[in-house]
């Protein structure tokens, strides 16, 4: 399909949009939390695909290539708005992860999960969202964000710990 798009095949481009719009919009919206801004950025991503399809070398999958474009555009938005943080090392702590039972029993689980994801640092958040929303492997996440696989594993490790701890804390404190 990318090959067709590189030859200015508008039908292929339309098909590509229909296949990728939903996951890409979800990915972008979750980072920006603004539907207008997310729509504009989504538009820019597809324009870049249209213009850059000829440069796609196939070293990664098409999906990770496109998510990589979206990721870099989100980072640009973060930079312009001063949102980018340097990822600080997460201090090693005793494992206070909740038991599964603590995590499972809640009718407001979705609310807690959402709130806890929003509390994660951007680096952690991107890694865990790509792993769980898109079911990317750590190798694919590495391609998308342009960081080594070991870094991705470390971020997901910390994101997982912080997420479970946060959900547990919210459940125990009765936060809704």
């Amino acid at each position: 399909m990318i090959s067709k798009i590189s030859k200015r095949d508008k039908k292929a481009f339309e098909d590509f949009y229909r296949a990728m719009e939903r996951p890409l919009y979800g990915f972008i919206f979750l980072k920006l939390n603004d539907s207008h801004q997310a729509s504009d950025l989504l538009h820019d991503v597809f324009i870049e695909v249209w213009k850059g399809a000829g440069r796609f070398e196939g070293r990664s999958s098409v999906k990770t290539w496109v998510f990589g474009i979206a990721y870099r555009k989100v980072i640009d938005v973060y930079r312009r708005s001063g949102k980018v943080e340097t990822m600080a090392d997460v201090p090693e702590m005793a494992d206070e992860s909740p038991t599964a039972e603590e995590t499972l029993v809640s009718s407001e689980r979705a609310t807690h999960v959402r709130a806890c994801i929003e509390e994660l640092k951007p680096d952690h958040r991107v890694a865990i969202e790509l792993a769980f929303f898109e079911d990317f492997s750590y190798r694919q996440i590495s391609d998308v964000i342009g960081s080594p696989e070991g870094t991705v594993k470390t971020r997901v490790y910390h994101a997982k710990k912080l997420l479970l701890r946060c959900v547990s804390a919210r459940l125990n404190s009765g936060v809704v």
């Binding site: 939903r22 919009y25 979800g26 539907s35 997310a38 599964a100 979705a110 999960v113 769980f132």
Partner: peptide, 20 residues
């Protein structure tokens, strides 16, 4: 227990993917 909790979190996240 971690696996069970993560599976539920993934399920929640996928069920609540924002749509355009």
């Amino acid at each position: 227990q971690d696996v069970e909790a993560l599976a539920l979190i993934r399920e929640e996240m996928q069920a609540n993917t924002p749509t355009n």
